[in-house]
């Protein structure tokens, strides 16, 4: 993948990181990795033409979502991969011994703007505070131990190791029930047939698309327009008796760990939080500014992102063909 760092920004980031590491070197705090992928993405504060008034943004899409797998696409790819994996395992004489799907299969789908701008619904806040009515999980069961031959055919590794990280070479070539195990086992074979490659993080989201999303998120929080909205929100909160500089500080207040995220005090604070957000259009500003950063980053990387979109289309088509065959 191409390097996206500008000649000026990367050395400055590295120096800053090294200084930070030196500064914290005597404590138990450590920062992982000096030069992560995507650290070089950056755009100047983009212009924003109009800011809509929004109380919530959960029904809104962010621009980068066009270059990320949707929940439905993710399910399609997983379903096709599992069908191909099961067919491959059948060649070795195995039927699937995986845990059944949880009730309500399909699970709690998340979208990017769900819970993104923190507490925004005053009615729910009055009931749940900084907690939530629905956990975003289906309580994944522990996997039962599998027979060694099954695991070997599935993964290509005698100890069930998964070689899906960049630079890892999948194992394979062993003999199981008279059949040769493909590289990465049946999982590796199925992934390969569905276009999984380093360019799409082995069948997931392309790194550049993730980096655009995360850079937009980070940059939005240093934008003067959002900081002004935070400041207005903070003044509103203060008038109600709550002293926080930003919505994140209210969400992260350590007293919720002792009192509880849905305690009476948390419910009162969260209600004020959501009310002040609505009063000062924090969600409207945040969603608009973050979208503008993403749009600018998308324009900056248009060619690579166009290829990413084509790759998603290709993989979804391969999945549909696999399920139809």
């Amino acid at each position: 993948m191409a390097t996206h760092a500008s000649p000026l920004s990367r050395p400055r980031l590295l120096t800053g990181g090294a200084l930070l590491l030196l500064a914290v070197g005597c404590t138990s705090t450590a920062a992982s990795d000096d030069k992560p992928a995507g650290a070089g993405l950056s755009v100047a504060p983009p212009s924003v033409s109009a800011v809509p008034t929004l109380v919530q943004a959960e029904d809104k899409a962010l621009p980068i979502e066009a270059y990320l797998l949707t929940g439905e696409q993710g399910r399609q790819l997983a379903t096709a991969k599992n069908a191909l994996t099961d067919r491959c395992m059948a060649r070795f004489g195995f039927t699937s011994i995986e845990p059944p799907a949880p009730s309500g299969a399909g699970g709690a789908t998340t979208n990017l703007t769900q819970r993104r701008y923190f507490v925004t619904n005053a009615t729910e806040a009055a009931q749940y505070g900084y907690g939530s009515k629905t956990p975003v999980t289906n309580a994944k069961p522990s996997a039962a131990p599998k027979p060694p031959a099954y695991e070997l055919a599935l993964t290509g590794s005698p100890n069930g190791a998964i070689a899906i990280m960049p630079g890892q070479t999948p194992q394979g070539g062993q003999d199981v029930n008279g059949q040769k195990v493909p590289p990465g086992g049946c999982l590796g074979e199925a992934s390969g047939k569905l276009g999984a490659a380093p360019a799409n993080n082995n069948g997931g989201d392309a790194q550049l698309a993730l980096d655009v999303k995360d850079t937009g998120w980070k940059q939005s929080q240093t934008d003067p327009r959002l900081l002004a909205a935070f400041s207005a929100w903070s003044g509103c909160m203060k008038a109600k008796g709550y002293n926080y500089p930003t919505p994140m500080a209210a969400t992260d207040d350590p007293q919720w760990q002792t009192l509880g995220a849905s305690s009476e005090k948390a419910r009162q604070t969260a209600t004020a939080d959501a009310t002040c957000k609505a009063e000062h259009n924090v969600v409207g500003v945040w969603y608009t500014v973050e979208s503008a950063y993403e749009t600018a980053l998308i324009e900056q990387n248009a060619e690579a992102l166009s290829a990413i979109k084509q790759d998603i289309d290709k993989r979804v088509k391969l999945a549909a063909e696999a399920l139809a065959s």
């Binding site: 992982s32 990795d33 992560p36 992928a37 995507g38 650290a39 993405l41 797998l69 993710g74 790819l77 997983a78 991969k81 998964i162 899906i164 990280m165 960049p166 999982l187 992934s191 999984a196 799409n200 993080n201 082995n202 069948g203 997931g204 989201d205 790194q207 993730l210 980096d211 995360d214 850079t215 998120w217 980070k218």
Partner: peptide, 12 residues
């Protein structure tokens, strides 16, 4: 996604 990888990049 199932079977996939991601660097966390700027949100490491």
């Amino acid at each position: 996604r199932p079977g996939a990888f991601a660097d966390l990049g700027v949100v490491k």
